[in-house]
Design a binder for these strands. Structure first.
Length: 502
RNA sequence: GGUCCUUUGGCCGAGUGGCUUAGGCAAAGCUCUGCAAAAGCUUCUACAGCGGUUCGAAUCCGCUAGGGACCUCCA
């Protein structure tokens, strides 16, 4: 079965065929490093990490470009038009670039915690001013942009006359252009009057004197518009047309719509073959926002230092939590649901650890053909589900179907010869491939301490001796005190004892 | 106000015109066990409401109600 991807542009699932056979160009809108990353940021980067990993699994050579927006142009609730980098820098008495560096580092740290693979190229907006100016000049020369007072605007009305502006985001162009149609939510922003039409968007903005971030341009000192950044970098590294462009649904309009317009004029072709958008994370049913006081930063999530959290959550728990829902569904976050994911992940991972250690004699013919068939069928569905627009929740559901079987094989509740050794090998391979390589999950257990392991072995030996002499006072003392230290031990059916750090 | 999306059992969450209304968490019972934990088995059963299409709909259409996202343009 070929890979099917839901294309936001056509609003349906399409068979994925890369423009250049064997290669995939993928661009994902990266973070704006004017502040700390929060839970909402985790979703797109984990989602597209899975896409990246899965395409790689499908033997594609992927060039994954994810930008860093480090120049001042941001969207923000309150819709106050201000350069957050510049403003915050003044408040904090920092250089803008110092601030940018700090939050870039924090972002990279968080990505590492999540076990996200680094993109192939991570370009910065400030590093591509030249390309952006070049692109703007091109758009002006083609007659789709105009300069006013040192700012340059894209002429949406002219573009819309011959192109399908609004298709991606489902806007109706006449309504966008009909200014009388606007209600009170339309912002009365500075610079609005100088535009030919309210629907026009800025490609370049003249910088007022107090603006710290500024670059020279043919139109005077200023800074680039938000949308041109992605168009310029995507074109530079992936070409005029590339396969996948990803990002959050909130970027559909105006950001991605504008990207299409800009690139279409410059390159004479729609830039992207497959548009992918992840849905948003809500918190207790509400969108994240400062006014709700429910923005949870990643550092707070990992440390548990937030009013909405009862405990710290491991990055792998968060990753698993995100994978348990489909990327195009809204995902409601709550302390309870994360706690439930934490337990679920632990259970699944322990079954996986058990699986890795399972081994038995070669046998060609399974005694329980029905079970053997069922297992193979569940395993085959892993790839089938992922091929259907990255159905990670269904893959995980199948893994949970298999977990009791794995545990039963270990405990002898299911005889080893019930399934063939070929099936067991397949089981192991599929789990490793999907759990580790594709889902990017890894153990949360930090007990691989070279010093601790032999000490634990000693304690467990002593406890075993005590138990054999029915000296339960001693054996319970060891167990109970270890629990207090955060180490849990379990007496297994086979007489051995396992342990782990909670 | 406009556009679009969404509504599944105590909670979280898949899914599809009829095979079985996934799976996880929680809860209850049982098995195993020195006890505990873990594990295994079992139970609880939902598809917002009202119409319609259909042999048949939670899945398609319409209406109603709740929820959500976006509605921009440079700071």
């Amino acid at each position: 079965m070929p890979l099917n991807i839901y294309n936001s542009n056509s609003r349906k699932k399409e068979v994925f065929e890369s423009i250049t056979p064997g290669h995939v160009g993928m661009y994902v809108c990266g973070p704006t490093v004017s502040g700390e990353s929060h839970l909402g940021h985790a979703r797109p980067y984990i989602t597209f990490d899975i896409v990246y990993r899965y395409l790689t699994h499908k033997k594609y050579k992927v060039r994954y470009v994810r930008n860093i927006t480090d120049a001042g142009h941001f969207e923000e609730e309150g819709r106050e038009a201000e350069d957050k980098v510049a403003k915050k820098a003044q408040v904090e008495k920092m250089e803008p670039m110092e601030l940018v560096q700090k939050y870039t580092n924090l972002f990279h740290w968080a990505m590492k915690q999540f076990n996200c693979i680094e993109p192939s190229i991570e370009p910065t907006a400030t590093g591509h001013i030249v390309e952006q100016i070049g692109m703007i000049e091109d758009i002006i020369s083609k007659g789709y942009a105009y300069e006013v007072n040192g700012s340059v605007y894209f002429d949406v009305k002219k573009y819309a006359a011959t192109h399908d502006y609004g298709k991606l985001s489902g806007r109706i162009i006449d309504e966008l252009l009909d200014s009388s149609n606007r209600d009170s939510t339309t912002r009365d922003l500075e610079g609005q009057q100088e535009k030919k039409d309210p629907a026009d968007f800025a490609l370049w903005k003249a910088a007022p004197p107090e603006h710290i971030m500024r670059w020279r341009s043919p139109w005077g000192e200023g800074f680039p518009g938000w949308h041109i950044e992605c168009s310029a970098m995507a074109t530079k590294y992936l070409g005029a047309q590339f396969d996948i462009h990803g990002g959050g649904m909130d970027l559909l309009f105006p950001h991605h719509e504008s990207e299409i317009a800009q690139s279409t004029i410059c390159n004479h072709a729609a830039p992207v073959k497959y548009w992918m958008h992840n849905n948003m994370i809500t918190i207790n049913g509400r969108k994240m926002g400062k006014s709700y006081n429910n923005v949870i930063k990643l550092t707070e999530l990992f440390s548990g230092s937030h009013d909405l959290l009862s405990q710290a959550f491991h990055p792998m728990t968060v990753r698993f939590f995100i994978l348990q829902s489909h990327y195009r569904s809204t995902l409601d976050f709550s302390n309870d649901s994360l706690m439930s994911s934490e337990k679920a992940f632990k259970r699944l991972w322990e079954a996986y650890e058990v699986l890795k250690k399972l081994s038995f004699e070669e046998n060609e013919s399974p005694k329980d053909i029905e079970l053997d068939t069922k297992i193979n069928s569940w395993l085959n569905e892993f790839e089938e589900f992922m091929d259907d627009d990255f159905g990670s929740p269904r893959v995980i559901a199948n893994m949970f179907e298999l977990a009791p079987i794995i545990n039963s094989l270990k405990d002898g509740l299911i005889a080893n010869d019930a399934i063939s050794s070929k099936t067991l090998a397949y089981l192991k391979e599929r789990f490793t491939t999907f759990l580790e390589n594709i889902f990017g999950l890894k153990s949360v257990d930090e007990s691989n301490n070279e010093l601790l392991a032999p000490v634990m072995q000693l304690l467990l030996d002593i406890r075993k001796e005590a138990k054999s002499k029915k000296d339960f006072a001693t054996s319970d003392k060891i167990r109970n005190q270890l629990v207090e230290m955060g180490i849990v031990i379990k007496d297994e059916k086979d007489g051995n004892t396992s342990w782990g750090v909670e």
